[in-house]
Amino acid sequence: MTVRVDGVDYEFSSLEEAVRFALKMAKSKGAEVQLHNGTFHVE
């Protein structure tokens, strides 16, 4: 599972870890999280 934040990809071994990271980053940026074909994008 890959989480992309500001064009940088972060790899996670589990969906749970990836979701937690994506939500944490989105909250800190006041951004939204989108899921596309198994890849999260924080914008």
Rank of each mutant, 00 (worst) to 15 (best):
T2I: 11
M25A: 09
V33I: 11
A31F: 11
F21M: 01
S14Y: 03
D9T: 11
E32C: 15
E11Y: 13
E16V: 10
E16D: 09
V3P: 00
L23M: 08
E17K: 05
V8L: 06
V33F: 05
H41T: 08
H41P: 07
S14P: 00
E16S: 08
Y10N: 01
E43W: 12
G30N: 11
G7C: 13
F12M: 01
E32F: 13
L35M: 10
V42I: 09
K29Q: 12
F21H: 01
E32A: 12
Q34N: 10
V8F: 06
V42C: 12
N37S: 05
V33W: 04
E32I: 14
M1Y: 15
F21W: 04
A18D: 00
K27R: 08
L15C: 15
V19A: 08
E16W: 11
L15A: 10
A22H: 01
V8T: 08
E43L: 14
R4M: 04
S13H: 09
F21C: 06
V42A: 06
H41C: 14
T2S: 08
R4A: 03
V8D: 02
M25C: 14
A18G: 02
S13V: 08
K27A: 15
S14M: 03
F21A: 01
V8R: 08
A26W: 09
V5K: 01
S28L: 15
K24R: 09
S14Q: 03
Y10W: 05
V42F: 07
N37F: 09
G7K: 02
M25I: 11
S13G: 09
M25R: 02
K24G: 07
D9K: 07
V42K: 07
S13L: 10
A22T: 02
R20A: 13
E16F: 12
H36N: 09
A31C: 03
Y10I: 03
D6T: 01
S28P: 07
E16K: 10
S14C: 13
R20H: 08
E11N: 10
A31E: 05
T2F: 13
M25G: 01
G30P: 03
N37E: 09
K24H: 14
L15M: 11
H36W: 11
V42E: 05
E17D: 10
